[in-house]
Write a protein that binds this DNA or RNA. Structure first.
Lengths: 346, 346
DNA sequence: CTAATTTAGTAAAACGTTTTACTAAATTCC
DNA sequence: GGAATTTAGTAAAACGTTTTACTAAATTAG
């Protein structure tokens, strides 16, 4: 049943002109190439009439451009990434690009596999939230000349374009906010990883804690233990034994994970503890209590990532100077970071 | 700097065999085509050595297959769709396919634009959550022989493959659950649309209400009024003036929207009202009160959608009989659907 | 020992574009 | 009025595969 789409050749035959002429006209080079008004009109009308659109695969083969970008994230179902994805999609489509999303599960093996699949010259550029161990693969992509922009984190010793936020400041400010609200035993729950988005958040927390002369209470969970028994035990222990009065979660899925646990062991805890989480979310707003969160500027992140990408794409082979953006996050102050005495007033 | 990737031609030159031979070997047709063991080995080793991978664009041009599928949803940042997307991605990559995600905003114009962009034979198949008015475009895709599977909803008068859930039963059961828990003035808040996923939910609600001899209280919000003043006013009016004791939301973003309003006008309302929402979500679990939700079987939906897609793809041009699946949703019973007296016990 | 068959490949066309290099006719220049 | 230039195009190569149709040499059949 599959009926053949018309090609330039068909148009050429129908109108009795060469395919070259048609190609020139279609690419807006008609005047430049001194094609007569009548011929241009004739071609344009016919193209309109038969509803011809060029075969993009053939175009890609010839030009080497696919107009497809890859956006590789940890997990596309995570709201933080899904929202960036949505914003990126909008920008890309406006410029005639499509976006392939893929999730690397913050897993090196999977990341490598995905990069391998895509680097087969199917793709014009990569926007990557890298997992910890794919420095080499990123380096290779860059070396063979494929545009790459990193997001959320980067490799200290690899010069790449990137867009991140000032995690240190954001974490410090958030911790200070808790301190200012008279919390004194503030725990920091984070993921065990060498990646700088996390280590910077840890440093921000530590700095604020040290400055205030408070006790540092830190739980670093291995990624694999999340939603597993091991993780549950660690969190339970921390929450119950340390007599803490506040918790700062370094990322949204940790918050989610911990809340489920809290819900089970002692629902009131969520009111009694001061709580701040990294990464904001519609649900933190409507939760009871509403959750104070470090909100990353999603739209702006997406815009900067794409700006850089398009700059690289436009520059073709000329190497452009590195663009490295650090944006500011904002603290969305809500009920969960108030001291208990005042918390239930609202 | 862009260094050229090796092509079959380069291999041919290096090994002094024809490109035909190499192509046969690479496609596993070596034995069949009587290529000698030694030559096969030689080619395979060299390919391994230089790390050659075929240019997919050229393959696509020649074979007409791109190994790319499109998954078009309302909004990829909505957790329901993001989760299906994640599941689809996994299945697709396992079979060597990639997935382009795009958001149509439940908007016909945008849907048409997206279909136009993709139907230029870049894409092997479409999985679509259709907006209300693109019946014709879907029909056209099918007519020109591109595989299409619809999800979440379908067009009553257009025979297509689809995967949906039994919205009528799910909504009826949810409403009955509220009734069984002694709620008597149960409102149904939904989107004004002719699409059957929504009308079926409405019918399910109505049936249960009628069966119980209760009063039907319905608010149908136009899609555009969500997160707008108009929508806020409508919801406020309903919540405050009607003396209702329970609400059933027909979709997750309505719940979110209403919760923000409730939070502002009267935070206690969230405890006083019986609440059920369509579409489950991690946050409903940890919310205070936890929210009773109709959970769609995300994984199963994704699996069925892809099963159908691969069946169509495998069948090539032979028309296969329509596959239309209706799956069951499950009611996740939590605190929000308990009567106030019992609600705060937990 | 010749004809038929099998083995082990290869040449070339095709997919649908873009682009470089060419040309024949018309026009301009001096 | 002949050379130079401009106009209005076109032919053909190239992008990197897959696949059909072919072939020369080796083997088998009778």
């Amino acid at each position: 049943m599959k009926q053949k789409r018309p090609s330039i050749k068909d148009i050429a035959k129908a109108l009795n002109v060469s395919i070259t002429t048609i190609s020139f006209v279609l690419n807006g080079k008609g005047e430049e190439r001194k094609i007569s008004k009548e011929v241009i009109k004739k071609i344009e009308d016919y193209v309109e009439e038969i509803n011809y659109t060029p075969n993009q695969v053939a175009q890609s083969l010839r030009t080497g451009e696919s107009k497809i970008l890859v956006f590789m994230v940890e997990d596309i179902s995570n709201s933080f990434f899904a929202n960036i994805a949505r914003a990126i999609e909008d920008i890309a489509y406006k410029k005639g690009y499509k976006v392939l999303f893929c999730s690397n599960e913050n897993n090196d093996k999977r990341s490598r596999e995905l990069i391998r699949v895509f680097s087969e010259r199917l793709v014009d550029g990569f926007i990557i939230i890298p997992s910890a161990g794919i420095r080499k693969e990123i380096e290779k992509l860059i070396k063979i000349g494929i545009p790459v922009v990193l997001g959320d984190r980067y490799f200290e010793d690899l010069p790449t374009h990137y867009v991140v936020i000032d995690n240190f400041q954001a974490a410090k400010a958030a911790t200070q906010h808790l301190i200012n609200n008279d919390f004194e035993k503030i725990a920091f729950i984070t993921i065990e990883t060498p990646q700088n988005q996390m280590t910077d958040r840890f440093k921000g927390y530590s700095q604020a804690i040290d400055d205030a002369g408070l006790e540092s209470i830190v739980l670093k969970l291995p990624f694999e233990t999340i939603n597993k028994k091991e993780g549950i035990t660690s969190i339970k222990t921390l929450l119950l034994k340390n007599n803490i009065d506040a918790v700062f979660f370094s990322t949204n899925y940790l918050t989610q994970f911990a809340f489920e646990i809290i819900k089970k062991i002692n629902p009131d805890l969520v009111y009694n503890l001061g709580i701040i989480t990294f990464d904001d979310n519609e649900f933190f707003k409507i939760n009871n209590p509403s959750i104070t969160a470090v909100a990353q500027p999603i739209e702006q992140i997406a815009k900067e990532l794409m700006d850089i990408m398009f700059k690289i794409l436009k520059s073709k082979d000329k190497n452009i100077p590195l663009i490295q953006k650090t944006l500011e996050a904002s603290l969305q102050i809500r009920d969960s970071s108030k001291k208990l005495s005042t918390k239930n007033e609202a």
